[in-house]
Design a protein around this nucleic acid. Structure first.
Length: 194
DNA sequence: TAGAGGATTGAT
DNA sequence: TCAATCCTCTAC
């Protein structure tokens, strides 16, 4: 079952970031389906410096963060890697959840081909790699997460004690906001990022 | 319009 | 620890 819009429109981005753990991200491109269980997420809100939309800054790049919850926000980082985010909350509130790692469940051979990987290990253990494995690029920016090319499906419920919290990665420039425990991982899962 | 830097990764 | 690599944002 596809995750309903209402889930993404909750007003607490941290709740959504935790709730996405255990759900499944799917893409279908050129008839090829790939899917993975979400095992690592990070929350971003306009109230902290880690976000592209800090202080409700609004630019061409982050425009999709202001759309209604349940869409994607994709951007290019370091000129090399695509990052896949889930937009949450209501229109004009730029909350988003970065998907940092997946456990591959479908289309592993397609993922390996896209990454030119020799083995299945560590296929989707990081935001740049999982976007490439799933075939995600800027064309998917703004897509509904109930569309035919990208969507999210429900998974088994995850108990709170199965979720490990910690500070987010790669945002040292955010000052004390970098210390917020807004990174969430499924405890013990081998597919999380390094 | 130029210059700086980044929600990363893989090799050294 | 460091370079790759290019788009975005900010300041002039």
């Amino acid at each position: 079952m596809k995750t309903p819009k209402e889930f993404f429109r909750q007003d607490d981005v941290v709740t959504v970031a935790k709730g996405l753990l255990g759900k499944y991200l799917f893409t279908q491109l050129n008839g090829r389906v790939t899917a993975g269980m979400i095992v690592e997420t990070e929350a971003y809100s306009p109230k902290e410096r880690g976000s592209h939309a800090f202080g409700y800054r609004r630019t061409k790049r982050n425009e999709q963060m202001y759309s209604e919850g349940g869409r994607s926000y994709v951007y290019l980082c370091y000129g090399i890697h695509h990052m896949f985010n889930v937009v949450t909350n209501v229109t004009d509130v730029p909350d988003a959840v970065l998907i940092r790692a997946l456990e591959p469940v479908e289309g592993r051979s397609t993922m390996m081909r896209r990454l030119k990987a020799r083995t299945e290990s560590r296929l989707t253990s990081g935001p740049g790699k999982l976007a490439k494995a799933m075939g995600i690029d800027l064309r998917m920016n703004g897509a509904s997460l109930q569309s035919k090319s990208v969507w999210i499906e429900e998974g088994a419920p995850v108990a709170t004690k199965q979720i490990l919290m910690g500070p987010r990665i790669g945002i040292d420039y955010a000052g004390e906001d970098a210390l917020l425990p807004w990174r969430f991982v499924l405890k013990g899962n081998i597919w999380v990022s390094r």
